[in-house]
Amino acid sequence: MVELLASARAGVRLLSLHGTADLQRADRLLRQVWGTRPGDDPPISLDVMCALAHVGGYIGGAFLDEELVGAAVGFLAADRSLHSHVAGVASRARGLGVGLALKEHQRAWAAERGLVAVSWTFDPLVRRNAYFNLVKLGAKVAEYLPDFYGPMSDGINDGDVSDRLFVTWPVTPDPAPATERAAGPSETAAVTVLDEAGTVRPGGGAPLLRCATPPDIERLRVDEPGEARHWRAALGGVLGAAFADGYRITGFTRSGWYLLARGGTA
């Protein structure tokens, strides 16, 4: 039912993709979303998608007026979850709720197969993704993964360190509203360990921490690559040290701050 509501709100039709023609469409879409240039590695190769579809892996597509505007690819994990490896939405369909519809399609697909959760990774510097994942969806941060994929040349991540947050999203929806579920500790009570200028501050050992994110890391990568690298190193250093010291991300604010507590869960 939730899947149908999400797709209805977005005005899209959600389908599992099969067959070379549809998978080629998904390949083209994901390359466009990532800005993949000739010679770059695609977000996921077409041959892998063909193999996944053939053996029953997850490949979902969102159609708007018969045009494929969203695609997501995932595979089964050993802990009885669906791991969503890549998902993208065409620029013309952003802001319509297509990403939410795809996530609900993944959740429904996982539920039909008796799985317990959906997992994925995301770049902790991308503020809108952090808010969507942690607040709107209510996913929980399980791990901080430094340079998880190693060097990447896919258009979006060229030359950047691939630090990621690994999140899990239960198949059974949390009855609490998203704002309450991800509110976490009071922002005003938290000690700032990375401020809005990208400056690292002392504060380790405080019960509650907060660290900022840049408003638009994607623009910084293009216009001010040195500043983007600074943010990557600063946030990676702060989150890496905090996780190693027993802190966990408990929330994310609309203004772009991660909230952390020692031993907490999102």
Rank of each mutant, 00 (worst) to 15 (best):
A176T: 08
L100D: 05
R80F: 14
L29A: 03
A71K: 02
I217K: 03
T265W: 14
R127Y: 01
T20D: 15
K140M: 09
A228S: 15
G19M: 11
F243N: 00
L137S: 10
G236C: 04
G60V: 08
G264C: 08
V86K: 06
H105D: 14
G95E: 01
G39S: 13
L64H: 14
G114K: 06
E143H: 14
V126E: 15
A101I: 06
T179D: 13
F63P: 08
T121N: 13
V191M: 12
R232W: 05
I249E: 05
R80N: 14
P225C: 13
Y131I: 02
G203R: 11
V118H: 04
A77R: 09
G61V: 07
A139K: 09
V118R: 01
W169Q: 04
R262L: 04
V89M: 03
V48L: 15
A142Q: 14
L145H: 12
L30A: 01
R28Q: 14
V12Y: 02
P177A: 12
R80A: 15
Q32Y: 00
N157C: 08
N133L: 09
A77L: 04
N157Y: 12
L208V: 05
G114C: 04
A190T: 07
L52D: 00
L4W: 05
Q32V: 02
R262Q: 15
D154C: 06
V33P: 00
D160F: 08
A110F: 02
G256A: 08
K140D: 13
V73K: 01
A233G: 07
D40C: 13
T265C: 06
I44E: 09
A87C: 07
A8D: 10
D147G: 09
P124R: 04
K140W: 11
D160N: 14
A183F: 13
A90H: 13
E67K: 15
A261W: 03
D27T: 10
F122D: 02
G56R: 03
D147M: 08
L46Y: 05
R9H: 13
Y58C: 12
G56T: 03
L209P: 01
Y144A: 08
R107L: 12
H18S: 15
R113A: 01
A244Y: 00
T250R: 13
A51Q: 13
L134F: 11
